[in-house]
Write a protein that binds this DNA or RNA. Structure first.
Lengths: 191, 191
DNA sequence: ACAGCAAGCAAGTAGGTACTTGCATACGCA
DNA sequence: TGCGTATGCAAGTACCTACTTGCTTGCTGT
């Protein structure tokens, strides 16, 4: 029963490149080094196979938490943003295809949207703690700042391969985003 | 020769919904209320037709400039961001399809990427002027902040239809993004 | 009135698609 | 040894796709 995983993996690659319509069962079977019939015997249909692919690539499984109370905001956030960036970057091709097919295949909506609200919530709570403990400006627009930080992570993961010059060097990006973010919510940069 | 425009418009709608593979010539012809043969007589092939669609929806035509020197940063940027947001929001479905097809149809790369570098340049120059005239912190990371602002605009335009709760109300969004941005580069919010 | 041109219609071509069927082959386990 | 199970292979079905051809219709400008 090793075929199942080979097919899943191959289907993920092919779907990421060509989308649902372009991910023909022949291509997937060839990529997996498996007979096309095996694919149908294992998953029943192309639709079911690609649903299994998205299920397997669960995004929001174990989104890491942020500490409360905050000890070193810049370091903690930089690490968290770096992790998140890496995860989104890895899922990028699947996400792009899923989003582009939202109209035609609404069942992918859960995969495409899942996680964003959670992430927003985690960051907001962390900032609320910063304000509560007097580390952040209580009048700051935390909601908008969090939205911007998340958009920056998504934008970096999605856009960098297309227009690399519009982004800071990949190893500096998390820290620089976080520093801007902290200034926006009034956290003094020193320590 | 009114068919040409009807076809172009219909093709834009169908392509935005279903992508290249899903935008069948039958669908487009039906949507345009035109015989399928007319489509081939007018554009030659499906590929040429959809290329014409992207050409027609030119994104970076007249990106509005920002004043130098700056007079009222918050107002000027809010207006500019609002305009930009509206433009991207309008192009969203086309952009998403084009991006998702970058691997298969590299000729759409120009359409998908065009504009981002320009926009970055315009904002950077505006901030440089702010720093030069003593309105912004000269030690601020303008590059990262500009990247974040642009990502926020793209993220809002792209993501709001999917996860509306993660964004500020649509009429407040531009101003709130700009305020965060100005704090990040050290522009005093007062006047 | 008539020539030219845009467009519709019906039919066809060549190829790709998901999916099925029937049969042969190999491997593990009792 | 035999049996169930997973897989390969060849072929076929029914449908969709881009694109073509030949012919007809209707409008326009001279």
């Amino acid at each position: 029963m090793v075929s199942r995983e080979r097919i899943l993996e191959a289907a993920g690659r092919v779907y990421a490149k060509h989308g649902f319509r372009g991910a023909t069962t022949r291509l997937i079977a060839a990529e997996a080094g498996v007979n096309e019939v095996t694919l149908f015997r294992t998953f029943g249909s192309k639709g079911a196979l690609l649903e299994a692919v998205l299920d397997q690539n669960d995004f929001c499984s174990d989104v890491s938490q942020l500490p409360d109370p905050a000890v070193n905001p810049e370091e903690e956030l930089t690490g968290w943003v770096g992790e998140h960036l890496e995860r989104v970057r890895h899922l990028r091709p699947l996400l792009i295809q899923a989003i582009s097919e939202l109209d035609e295949r609404p069942e992918v909506a859960e995969f495409a949207c899942r996680g964003r609200d959670e992430v927003h919530e985690i960051l907001s709570q962390y900032c609320a703690a910063l304000q509560r403990d007097g580390h952040a400006d209580p009048s700051a627009d935390v909601f908008a700042a969090v939205t911007m930080l998340i958009s920056s992570v998504m934008g970096d993961a999605m856009g960098r391969p297309m227009v690399p010059d519009s982004f800071p060097p990949v190893d500096e990006a998390p820290r620089r985003y976080v520093r801007c973010f902290l200034r926006a919510i009034g956290v003094s940069s020193s320590r």
